[in-house]
């Protein structure tokens, strides 16, 4: 077997995943704090107010990274869902399942903070604008995926159904992204172009906290995903010896009414 494929299968085994994820988790939490805390500080206290939006621009430092995450997580969920669907990799199914609530959280943050930004800027909390509506559809897609996972008792069948919904839902991502170009919307267009920085219309003093928060939310997602996946793996493997040993080790054999 190809060494890469072998590594993939080895890492994909639940006990190995549990062990490895336990090593990565503290690093991801530390990276979240290292990027998120300065990002929040710069965004709230150091970045200048916008000439048009004034102080409400500070909402952007959480709204924009959350919006990016809402789409990134959906794409991630569809990709790992497809891996689970095609190659029946159990860990891929677990990751797809665990990504959904995190994505829904970021989508909810996007919608709520966007609404709170809209009131002082546009004069309204909500308009049925293409960008806002497509983002709301994304939230419903996340709810759909989560509902499928909870409604179907067999986790493998649930994962397959949810993966299909996630793959179909992918069509919404370009709609969200290009909605400001395809339709005449109230929502502003792109201010940041990652691959053509000279075309970005955002000042570096505002870009720095935004980039820091973008990294922080990515690391947050990694940490949250791993901690959720570890619980899911424990639950699915609860009858296996390695989980029993882990529980014994964690609580001590005396607590279980048995001496070694």
């Amino acid at each position: 077997m190809h060494p890469l494929l072998l590594w993939f299968h080895k890492t994909g085994s639940p006990p190995e995943f549990y062990r490895l994820s336990g090593k990565f988790l503290p690093w991801l939490i530390a990276l979240t704090a290292l990027t998120g805390l300065p990002g929040l500080y710069l965004g709230l206290f150091e970045a200048p107010a916008d000439y048009l939006q004034r102080e409400s621009v500070r909402i952007m430092y959480i709204h924009v990274p959350s919006a990016w995450m809402s789409m990134f997580i959906f794409a991630f969920m569809a990709v790992v869902g497809a891996v689970g669907l095609i190659w029946r990799v159990k860990i891929a199914e677990v990751l797809a399942r665990c990504a959904a609530p995190i994505g829904a959280t970021f989508t909810a943050i996007t919608l709520i903070t966007g609404s709170l930004w809209g009131k002082p800027t546009w004069g309204t909390y909500w308009v049925w604008d293409a960008r806002l509506t497509s983002e709301l559809v994304l939230l419903f897609l996340y709810f759909g995926v989560m509902a499928l996972h909870n409604a179907i008792e067999d986790p493998r069948r649930a994962a397959r159904a949810a993966a299909i919904l996630a793959l179909v839902g992918l069509i919404n991502l370009p709609v969200i992204h290009y909605s400001v170009e395809w339709w005449n919307t109230l929502h502003q267009g792109q201010s940041i172009r990652l691959f053509a920085s000279d075309k970005s219309s955002i000042d570096p003093s505002m870009l720095t906290p935004l980039i820091l928060m973008a990294f922080a939310t990515k690391f947050w997602f990694g940490a949250s995903l791993l901690s959720r996946a570890r619980v899911q793996v424990l639950e699915q493997e609860s009858g296996k010896d390695w989980v029993r040993q882990l529980v014994r080790k964690e609580l001590g054999t005396d607590d279980l009414g048995k001496t070694p």
Binding site: E55, S56, I62, I109, T113, L116
Partner: peptide, 16 residues
């Protein structure tokens, strides 16, 4: 704008 900024950051922190 203060209540809107505070509300947004509160929602962000609470949901996370």
């Amino acid at each position: 704008h203060f209540p809107f900024i505070l509300g947004s950051y509160a929602v962000f922190v609470v949901l996370l």
